[in-house]
Write a protein that binds this DNA or RNA. Structure first.
Length: 641
DNA sequence: TGGCCATAG
DNA sequence: CTTTCTATGGCCA
């Protein structure tokens, strides 16, 4: 209708290349990485009375996610069960992997979603490498991982087809015809090429993740967060999938590949369409009005409404969606946004890596919490763990640059990277069951917030003292504000959060740069000029800046060997049931290397990342590098002319 | 800024 | 077939 609407609808802008990583059965993998013996065993991770996840050996034997523990034991009596209720080891592993992936990024557009997913916008790397590509010798291509260091990278065969593509029967029609005169097809050709490089990069990063960190991942390669995530999920463990063009429907009868991917999907499976939106859309498409309140019980199994159904629904467009979805406080233009999603259009950026979280919150649920005394006690517990988390996430690691053996038990802590300025308390009252049929299913949370007192930043005071003080002096007043009038409260949930982070000068340097600079660290010597030169593709190259790729360079700055003492002692300190499973076996590298990846779908895709040191000297800049890098390096010089 | 909703894993 | 604990982002007053 109006021009703005047209502009924001149906416009494919496939100018980016985005990778989506999903670590395979992450929780189980964390335990396996700590204790490789477990890799060969059926392993299940327990929370409460259910298996939250299990490794693929266990799945082969009939176990699955969200299974009752008793059932799992019955199906597979020799299953190894570990407790996974303490999330700290998962959080640590997640951060380590995230930081590892970050070291490869040039633009630091690396976004973590939950513990086990990462988006990476690699457009800049792809574009750079397209320039370097020699279309006359695709078999011996080299992918540069650094603008300033021509040796940093990997060799690959650009004429080979990457592991998996979607749709499966189509092909990467790539490189046979370099110059097609027709405008449209050459655009599609360019996209193919960029996706091809993206797929090779994804493959390389997956293998780095496995070799250096011991984790396998599933990767999706496409042009948006939406598409890369969806396409990645097609081939599940230890694999990758690339969504190939044509993305849009052609002028012929064929459906575009984006539509082929999306149309069969259940509407609620589209990322961004959650429970409420799916319900409303489903109701409209099915032609029955919303059954108010009762709908929650049976879930989504009964009526299958796919994306294709919605798109084909008569009169459906972004305006219709807008009126359907209009609710309490849904974002303006939600209709257009959803309509775009249904067409595979998603322009949301991969957000820049953040060194500091926006908020930290701790919550717990309760069966019966109705006296002030109980509340007070719980608030104490919560503020204690909140404080712990604040120290973990907001306190700079005390980098012992001095003697590493000053092992004082009272941990030497650095400075605060940020000060949260406000404190928030949220509660939920028990969903009271009404006589007329259990209708009162309100997930109502209420909250009050106030300033966070400064005394909690005292790093020398005991946790218990600080948390008690915090509970008494700051949280309880909020609680009284929250439940001022109501006579009786029976809480089912309490949440305590700190928000409104104000970065201290210490953190504001931007951690992305620091991490990037570690990439160029060799023999413990920082090369500050590298960090300064980032983004400058015309930078001249010094021979002694060269890092030869066949040397095993520890990329992760705060590297912790997978079977380190620290992790082991932490497991003991945690003192829960996991210890039993963890304690009994020394680390065995042989187990790791012989573990057969029966589920690897990439078998016919040979690794091309072996490199051979036969160095040559560049006559322009005197850089010393292996022969395979020289061709790309020369083109690098030619770019500037 | 505070309160609340929606979403994701 | 889906709970619990986090975290993020948007609207509105």
């Amino acid at each position: 209708m109006d021009p703005i609407w047209r502009q924001t609808t149906f416009k494919r802008r496939d100018h980016r290349i985005i990778l989506h990583f999903d670590y395979d059965c992450f929780y189980a993998s964390v335990f396996e990485a700590e204790n490789p013996f477990l890799k060969s065993r059926p392993l299940a991770v327990q929370q409460k009375q259910i298996v939250v996840t299990c490794n693929y050996e266990a799945r082969r034997r009939g176990l699955h996610k969200l299974q009752l523990i008793r059932e799992a034991r019955k199906v597979c009596p020799d299953v190894v069960i570990v407790l996974g209720e303490d999330l700290t080891r998962f959080r640590d592993a997640s951060k380590a992997l995230y930081n590892f992936l970050r070291t490869f990024s040039w633009n630091d557009k690396v976004e973590r979603l939950g513990f086990d997913e990462v988006y990476m916008d690699v457009t800049d790397m792809i574009e750079y490498n397209i320039e370097l590509l020699n279309t006359n010798n695709l078999e011996n291509s080299f992918f540069g991982l650094s603008r300033s260091d021509p040796c940093k990278g990997f060799s690959f065969d650009a004429s080979s087809t990457p592991p998996n593509i979607f749709p499966a029967q189509s092909s990467f029609a790539i490189l046979c015809i370099p110059n097609s005169n027709e405008n449209k097809s050459s655009e599609s050709h360019a996209l193919q090429l960029r996706l091809l490089l993206g797929a090779h990069l994804g493959h390389y990063l997956r293998h780095q993740l496995e070799e250096q960190k011991g984790y396998t991942a599933t990767v999706g390669i496409s042009t948006s967060k939406l598409l890369s995530k969806l396409v990645g999920s097609i081939n599940k463990p230890n694999a990758q999938t690339t969504l190939v063009p044509p993305y849009l429907s052609g002028s012929d009868m064929r459906k575009g590949n984006v539509a082929q991917l999306l149309d069969p999907l259940e509407i609620g499976k589209v990322p961004g369409i959650g429970f409420k939106l799916a319900l409303k859309i489903r109701n409209h498409v099915l032609g029955r009005p919303a059954k108010f309140g009762t709908g929650l019980v049976y879930g989504a199994t009964q009526d299958h409404v796919s994306v294709g159904n919605v798109r084909a629904c008569p009169g459906m467009n972004s305006q219709t969606l807008d009126t359907i979805l209009r609710g309490q406080s849904l974002p303006q233009g939600i209709g257009a946004k959803i309509w775009n999603l249904l067409h595979g259009i998603d322009d949301t950026e991969v957000s820049m890596a953040r060194s500091i979280p926006k908020q930290i919150s701790i919550e717990d649920t309760y069966l019966h919490l109705d006296t002030l005394d109980k509340v007070r006690k719980e608030l104490c517990k919560l503020s204690q763990s909140l404080l712990k988390r604040m120290h973990l996430d907001l306190l700079e690691e005390a980098e012992h640059s001095g003697p590493p053996e000053d092992n004082c038990q009272a941990r030497v802590r650095g400075k605060w990277l940020a000060h949260p300025r406000t404190l928030r308390l949220s509660t939920r009252v028990r969903p009271s069951i009404q006589a007329d049929g259990s209708r009162e299913r309100l997930f109502n949370r209420k909250s009050r917030s106030g300033p966070l007192p400064n005394f909690i930043f005292d790093v020398n005071e005991e946790f218990s003292v600080l948390s008690e003080k915090l509970a008494e002096e700051a949280i309880l007043p909020l609680f009284r504000r929250l439940h001022s009038g109501s006579a009786c409260w029976d809480l089912s949930l309490i949440n305590v959060a700190v928000t409104n982070m104000v970065e201290t000068a210490h953190a504001s340097g931007g951690q992305g740069r620091d991490i990037h600079s570690m990439f160029y660290r060799q023999d413990g010597e920082a090369r500050q000029q590298e960090a300064d030169g980032i983004g400058d593709s015309t930078k001249t190259i010094n021979a002694d800046d060269v890092v030869v790729p066949w040397q095993q360079v520890r990329i992760d700055g705060h590297e912790e060997p997978i079977n380190s003492e620290r992790q082991g002692s932490e497991a003991v300190a945690a003192g829960n049931g996991t210890e039993d499973a963890l304690a009994f076996k020394p680390s065995q590298d042989s187990v790791v290397s012989t573990a057969s990846p029966i589920y690897d779908r990439d078998e016919n895709f040979e690794d091309e990342y072996m490199v051979y040191p036969s160095n040559q000297l560049c006559h322009i800049c005197d850089a010393f590098m292996p022969a395979f890098a020289m061709a790309a390096h020369e083109r690098f010089h030619n770019l500037g002319d």
